[in-house]
Amino acid sequence: MLVETAVFAAVAALMGVSTVAFVAFSLLGDHENRYFLLPPAIMSIAGLSYAGMAASSGGFALEGLVLELRYLDWLLTTPLIVMHIAVVAAASRKTIAAAMGADALMIAAGYAATTAATPGVKWGGFAVSTVAFLAVVYLLLTTVTDGVRDETAAVQGTFRTLRDLTIALWLVYPVIWLLSPSGFGVITAPDYHFIIAVLDTTAKVGFTSIVTFSITRVGDLFAEAETTATATTA
């Protein structure tokens, strides 16, 4: 458990640094859009989650709650990520709500499948979670993407980057789950936790970094898109 604790702690530390960096960026930059609070919020939740997982795995506190903390983390952060992507694409509230609902269902069903006592519940949960994930992917690729066609190329570029990164990384999760002990047991639990940590870190830090870089590198270009998105989503 020592390796897992160290991994969780490292991820938590990285999340914390990223959170501070993004907040500092948000404060230094003249960005008044309230959606700029999403990336640091996601990062903070994830960091706190990993800190909790590190404490739990290390025997310091929250004994045996690694799985619960992870799914709680996902249940909060993944809908926010979806929301952020949809907001960048200036999607409608209905679409955003549907995507966030499907995402939450995906996480909940995945938790059910992971903690299922019987194979029926486990594969049923996996199927429901997978369908929900496909629904989210569908919404992001169709409805939300259709809405972004009216936005500028820069906004579209940022949107696509976030969308593709998210979908690509999230596609790995069910595969890893199938290889994990919860699934067919190809990889061990510590390796599973490591891969998930890498994926989480990559997904969240990568996501935040892309948003940050998009703003800092072509930040002024983004201004009109920001304004348009704000006006559309307000």
């Binding site: 820069a154 570029g157 980057t161 593709d164 990384l169 390796d191 994926l199 990568g206 998009s214």
Partner: peptide, 30 residues
């Protein structure tokens, strides 16, 4: 360990490639 290494490597490579491509493509699209 082998599978984990494989996935991490693929994920890292994907992240690297996507980041670079997105950066260039975004600027070029802009």
């Amino acid at each position: 360990a082998l599978v984990t290494t494989l996935f991490v490597a693929v994920v890292g490579a994907s992240l690297l490639v996507i980041t670079l491509v997105r950066d260039t493509a975004g600027a070029l699209g802009f």
